[in-house]
Amino acid sequence: MALIELLEVTKTYRKGEHVVTPLANVSLSVEAGEFFVLLGPSGSGKTTLLNLVAAIDRPDRGSIRVGGVELGTASSSKLSDWRAEHVGYVFQQANLVPVLTAYENVELPLFLFGLSAAERHKRVAIALEAVGLADRATHLPKQLSGGQEQRVAIARAIVADPEILVADEPTGNLDHESAEGVLDLLSRLHRERKKTVVMVTHDPRAARYGTRRMVLDKGELKEEVVAR
């Protein structure tokens, strides 16, 4: 059974006086352990689809099941709990809390699990080690480069050990070298830690890291390209 299953999902929202339908009857399944890349031009609905998979938005119609759990009809608090446990989200911008150090930013999701300070410390150390920033633990976000900030955000996404990582244009704001570093890191997490990665990008170079690619255009998944 697929880890992520979208069945005839439709999502509309209002933009001023217009009703926009970024997703219309979209169906998709992603197997556990895949590095799934969703390509598409700006405004094609990629982020909308990603937000549905990450349970931070709900569909107007259709069903979304992730790990056998129906997300489309779950309550808001249930979805919060579910997100904390099952999904790590990497945004286009790192979105770190500026008044907290790298360590404290990574630690934030762990407060949701009622862990002891020692256990939190252990997990944060492992996550920072995994992204190669153990030596930057006490730095504030403003003391880090863009690439380092994004790696801290990835550490925050994996610290609670979720089975799914969703990444929305994670290299969109980075220079080429930093972008390669972040993509290598995601790829390594996928390979070594068996994470299911769902990444949205419009950059074909970034898309090469995926084990499966699809293109979303005008609200529909039009094309599927099996890579590597």
Binding site: I56, S76, A84, Q93, N95, V97, L112
Partner: peptide, 14 residues
Amino acid sequence: VRELATLRAVGYGG
């Protein structure tokens, strides 16, 4: 607002 939304996305409730 974006930071708060990020915290929501991480799993914190309203």
